Simulated scan of single mutants.
Amino acid sequence: MTPYQRLADLGLALPPAPKPVATYVPFVQEGNLLFLSGQGPREADGRQRTGKVGDEIGVAQAYDDARLTGLNLLAVMHEALGDLARVRRVVKLLGMVNAVPDFGDHPKVINGCSDLFVAVFGEAGHHARSAVGFGSLPNNITVEIEAIVAVD
């Protein structure tokens, strides 16, 4: 089963790859590694999900935001590679959560992206990861996630 079939089985379709909001490129490929710039929970229409996790945003909503962020990362992978089947393995994620100081469930939030990658890529979706809290993120988005992917 292809990654696209798995996405369809999940009821998901790739959105257009988000455009950079500052001076950077969305990805860089060096050899067989694809480095993806941080993405956030941007809807296909461009709206961003914002707020402080642990205050007005709960873990369940933040998990959904991380899942949407993962979908945006998949869109960038598709743009970079032309075919998600070229992903050999998701190597590493860095998940950043816009959280109140005493929030402690960062891993549960970033699981939204991790669970999506495992569902789309199977065993190749399992990855190393960091999930950390930040006092703020650009445009007050709830999460930002960057990735390193091994490709064929």
Rank of each mutant, 00 (worst) to 15 (best):
M1A: 10
M1L: 11
Q5G: 06
R6N: 07
L7F: 09
A8P: 02
L10H: 01
L10R: 08
G11K: 08
A13M: 05
L14M: 08
P16Q: 14
P18A: 00
P20I: 06
P20R: 03
P20F: 02
V21E: 13
T23Y: 07
T23S: 13
F27Y: 14
G31T: 04
L33H: 08
L34S: 12
G38H: 08
G40E: 02
P41C: 12
R42F: 10
E43C: 06
A44Y: 04
D45N: 15
R47Y: 01
R49C: 12
R49H: 15
G51I: 09
K52F: 04
V53Y: 09
D55T: 13
E56Q: 15
G58C: 03
Q61P: 00
Q61G: 00
D64F: 09
R67N: 06
T69K: 11
T69I: 09
G70M: 05
L71M: 06
L73R: 01
V76I: 13
E79S: 14
E79Q: 15
E79M: 14
A80G: 11
G82I: 10
D83A: 11
D83L: 07
L84F: 03
R88T: 14
R88S: 13
V90H: 03
V90M: 03
L93F: 11
L94S: 10
V97W: 03
V97Y: 03
N98P: 11
A99L: 09
P107C: 06
C113P: 01
S114K: 15
D115S: 15
L116E: 12
F117I: 02
V118Y: 04
V120D: 12
F121W: 05
F121R: 00
G122N: 07
G122I: 09
A124K: 14
G125W: 09
H126I: 08
H126G: 04
S130F: 02
A131V: 04
A131P: 07
L137N: 03
L137C: 03
N140I: 02
I141C: 06
V143Q: 07
E144T: 04
E144V: 03
I145F: 01
E146C: 08
I148H: 00
V149G: 00
V151K: 08
D152R: 13
